[in-house]
Design a protein around this nucleic acid. Structure first.
Lengths: 214, 214, 214, 214
DNA sequence: CATGAATGAGGTTTCATTCAT
DNA sequence: GATGAATGAAACCTCATTCAT
C-alpha cells in the first residue's frame, strides 16, 4: 500500500510518469510566461527549462495556446478553491461573523497572491492580452467573486446586519475592486508584505466603517 | 471666429499636415491595438486602416514600439488631466465638499472610461503585457492616483472630517481599487452605463458610510 | 575677365551653378562611398552632406548606380592622365631614360594614391563589387596600364636596352602587379608614406636589377 | 578501403548529416556570393540552390554575415595551407633551390586560383567590400604572404645568394604584388591558363633577372 | 528647379509546428 | 514515446525612387 489513491489516479507507472511530466510542463510554462511574458516565451524555452526536447512538448499539449489555458486553469482553480472553501454565505449570521469571514477570505487570497507575485502577474498582466476568450475567463473570476460577495451582502441585508439600502451588486463590484487593489499592490512591491497587509486591513475597515468620522 | 490656436500650432501648411497625419496614425494604432491586441496588429494593419503605405508609418514613428508609447502617452495624459483638473486637496474643507469632489473626479473618469471602453482595454489589458518599462508606466498611474487620494485623506484627517485613525496610505490604495472596479465594470459591460453608475455610486457610499447597518 | 574659360565652359550663370553642384555631388558621393561603402551609403547621406534635399540628387543623376559611375570615371580619368602625361613610349631611348620615366610615372601615381588613400579604397575595394560592368571598367585600367607598359618593353627590346628574351606581355602584367603592391601598401598603412616610398623603390630595383646577387 | 577518416569525423549519423549540410551551405553560399555578389544574394537564393527551406539556413548559421565569414575562412585556410606547406624559409640554401621553391609556391597558388576563378573573385572583389573587419582579414593574407617572402629574402641575403643591399620588406611587398597581378590575370581571362602561366614565369624572371639586358 | 513626403519591393530573421528517425 | 531538424508563414524595417507642391 502506497497510500490512498488520488482522484486523478493513474493506473500504470507509465501513466503516472506521463501525468507528472504534464504537470512539470505546466509549471515550467507558468514560470516562463509570468517572467518573460507569453509572446516572448518560446516553446523551446519551456522545454529547455525542463531539459526535454521541444518536440516532446507537443506530445502533451496541442499548441502554445493550449498550455496557456492549462496554466491559467490551474491558477484559477486555486483561487476559486480559496474563495469557496468553507465559506457558504448562509453560514454567517452576524456582523462579527461576517467580518471574521472576510478576514479569512482575505487571508486565503493573501496566501496565494503574496506568496507568489507571479500569480497576479500571470493572470492580470499576461493572460488578459492573448485573446478574448482567455480574457473573458480571467475577468469571469471577478464576476464569480462579485457574485459570491453579492450573496453575502444579500444574506446580511436580509438578516439585518447590513444596511437595508445597500446596493448589493454595485457594492459587491466595488469591494472586488478593493481586492484588485491588493493584487496591484502585490505587483508593485512584491516584497513589502506589510503594505499589502495594511491595504487589506484598510479595505476591511472601509467596508465596515467607511472613512468619515462618526 | 475659428477658436483659439491650439498649443501645438503648426506654422506652415506642410507642418500642419504632417502633424495631422501623426495624430491619425496614433489614433489608428490605438484602434487596432485595443481591438486586435498589440501583438496581433501589424504595421501594415495600421497603415491600411489609414490608406497609407506602410513605409509611410516609418517616416513618422521609429518603430512599432514607438507608436505604442505615443498611444499610451496620449491616454495617460488625458487621465492625469482629469485627475488633476481643479482638484487641489486643500481646496476641500468639509466632508460634504469632499464627497462632492469625489463625485466630480468619479464623473470625469467615467467620462473617459465609459465613453470609450477601449481606453481601459488598452491600458489595463494591452499595455501591461509588452515590457517592464511600459507596465511600470501604466501602473505608475495608480501610484499617482493613490498619492493624490492620500493627500486628500491627510488633509481631511487634519481638518477632522475624516476618521482620526484612518490609515491614509492603505486606505488610499483601497479606494483606488474602487476606481479599478469601475474600470473593470466598463470592460465587462461596456454598454451598460447604468451598471457603471451604480458601481461608482456604491463605491462612494462604501467610502463614506461603509456597508454595516448603523 | 575672370580668367581663361575652362574646357567645360558653361555659358549662363545658372548653367555654371548647375555644373558646380553636379561636381559637388560627385565629390560628396566619393567621400561617402569610400568611407561607408557603396551599399551602406544612402542617397540621403550624400544629400545631407551637401545640405541639399535628397530629391535634388535625382535632378542631376539618374540613380544611385549612375553617380557611382561618375565617381569612378573621375578617378579613372585622373589616373589615366597621370599614366599618359608626356610619357610616350618612343620618347625613351636608353635604359637610364626609361628608369627615369618609370620614376616619374611612379611618382605621379604616388601623388594620387598616397595623397588620398580613399582613391585606392574606392577603386579596388568598393567599385569592384557592384556589378560586372563596373568591375570590368576598373580592371580595364590594369589592362591599359599593362598595354602601356608592354609598349615600353617592346620599344626597349627593339632598341636593345632590355632583355632580348623578355616576355613583353607577361612581364608587363607582372610589373603592373608591382604597382598594385604600392596601392595595397597605401591601403594598409595610409599614414606611412615612407613604407610606400620603399615599396615603390624596391619595385623599381626589382625591375631593373632583380634580387639575385650579381 | 574507404580512405582514412577525416579530421572532423562525426560519430553519430545525425552529427554527420548535420556537418555535411553545413558544408553544403557554405559551398552554396560561396557559389552564390562569388557569382551574384554578397549584397545581391539573398538567403533564399542559397537555400533554393540546395533545395532546402530558408529557415533551415538559420539552424546552421547565425545570420548572413556569419556564413560569409565561414566562406572566407575556408578559402583563406586553403591558401595559407598552400603557402605554408613544406616551405620553410631556412630549408633553402642556394639561389637555385630558392628559384625552385618559388616555382613550387607559384604552382600551388595557381592550383587554387586558376582551378577556380571564383576564389579570387570572392576574396578580392566581394570580401573586401563588406566591412572593415573582413577587409582586414583578407588583406591580412597579403601581410602574411609578405612576411613569409621577407623571411626568405632575409635568409637569402644572409647566405649571400641574394643582393646584400636588398630592401627585404619593400621587395617582399613588391613581389606579393606580382602574385596579385597573377590573381587579376585569372579574374580577367579565367580560361587563358597560358597567359597566367606566362605572367607567373615573367614574375619569376623579374625577380631573378630583372628586365634589363646584361 | 528644389524639396521631402510617400511608397512598396525586397530582404532578414523568428518561431510555432510537423514528422521522420 | 522522445527528439530536434526542417519548414515557411509572417512580421519588421530600409531605402531607392517618384512626384506633387
Amino acid at each position: 500500500m502506497t497510500g490512498p489513491p488520488t482522484t486523478t489516479q493513474a493506473r500504470t507507472r507509465a501513466e503516472r510518469l506521463r501525468q507528472e511530466l504534464r504537470e512539470e510542463i505546466v509549471t515550467a510554462a507558468f514560470e516562463e510566461f509570468s517572467q518573460r511574458g507569453y509572446h516572448d516565451t518560446g516553446i523551446a524555452d519551456i522545454a529547455q527549462r525542463l531539459g526535454i526536447g521541444h518536440g516532446t512538448f507537443y506530445r502533451h499539449f496541442k499548441n502554445k495556446r493550449d498550455i496557456l489555458d492549462h496554466v491559467v486553469d490551474g491558477l484559477l482553480a486555486r483561487i476559486l478553491e480559496a474563495l469557496a472553501a468553507e465559506n457558504a454565505p448562509d453560514a454567517v449570521d452576524t456582523l462579527d461573523e461576517y467580518v471574521e469571514q472576510c478576514r479569512r477570505i482575505s487571508g486565503a487570497l493573501s496566501e496565494i497572491f503574496s506568496a507568489d507575485p507571479r500569480v497576479a502577474r500571470m493572470l492580470l498582466l499576461e493572460a488578459t492580452s492573448i485573446d478574448a476568450e482567455l480574457t473573458e475567463r480571467v475577468l469571469g473570476l471577478f464576476d464569480t467573486a462579485t457574485a459570491l460577495t453579492a450573496a453575502y451582502f444579500m444574506h446580511g441585508r436580509e438578516l439585518g446586519y447590513l444596511r437595508a439600502d445597500l446596493d448589493v451588486d454595485g457594492t459587491a463590484r466595488a469591494v472586488v475592486g478593493v481586492i484588485l487593489a491588493n493584487l496591484l499592490q502585490g505587483l508593485r512591491t512584491p516584497a513589502d508584505r506589510e503594505a499589502q497587509r495594511r491595504t487589506a486591513d484598510a479595505g476591511l475597515r472601509l467596508m465596515f466603517d467607511g472613512i468619515a468620522r462618526r
